[in-house]
């Protein structure tokens, strides 16, 4: 639907479009089932970053603020990307995992 505007041609480029971030992108990470973290975290990460670095330097740093984070292991953690199952391995880049600008990753403790 269009904005009802005073003059025709009310069109503007999206302020946070992918190209603005160059070789990086925005990625959101949410710990499902644990609302001690009130919302998903937002990151700016290089597209070529390896999953292992992303997890260790960005995800772990923030979420280890909850002492219960120590109970998570690769075996009991299930990841999803935009609600589809994701099986990340450490030496694969974010792009190779299919992660694109403003995607939502969730992890959850199972079992």
């Amino acid at each position: 639907m269009a904005v009802v505007s005073l003059k025709p041609g009310y069109e503007f480029p999206a302020r946070d479009r992918a190209e603005v971030f160059g070789d990086d992108m925005l990625v959101y990470v949410h710990w499902a089932g644990n609302l001690f973290f009130c919302a998903a975290a937002a990151y700016r990460a290089p597209k070529a970053m390896k999953w292992g670095d992303f997890k260790a330097n960005m995800v772990d740093t923030l979420f280890s603020g909850d002492p219960d984070y120590a109970k998570l292991t690769p075996e009991n953690t299930r990841w999803t990307l935009n609600d589809q199952p994701l099986n990340p391995s450490a030496d694969v880049s974010l792009t190779e995992l299919g992660i694109t600008h403003k995607d939502l990753l969730k992890f959850e403790k199972v079992g």
Binding site: A39, A40, Y43, D66
Partner: peptide, 9 residues
């Protein structure tokens, strides 16, 4: 406790 990062808006 602080959530030491930025939230999705």
């Amino acid at each position: 406790f602080f959530m030491l990062g930025l939230p999705q808006l």
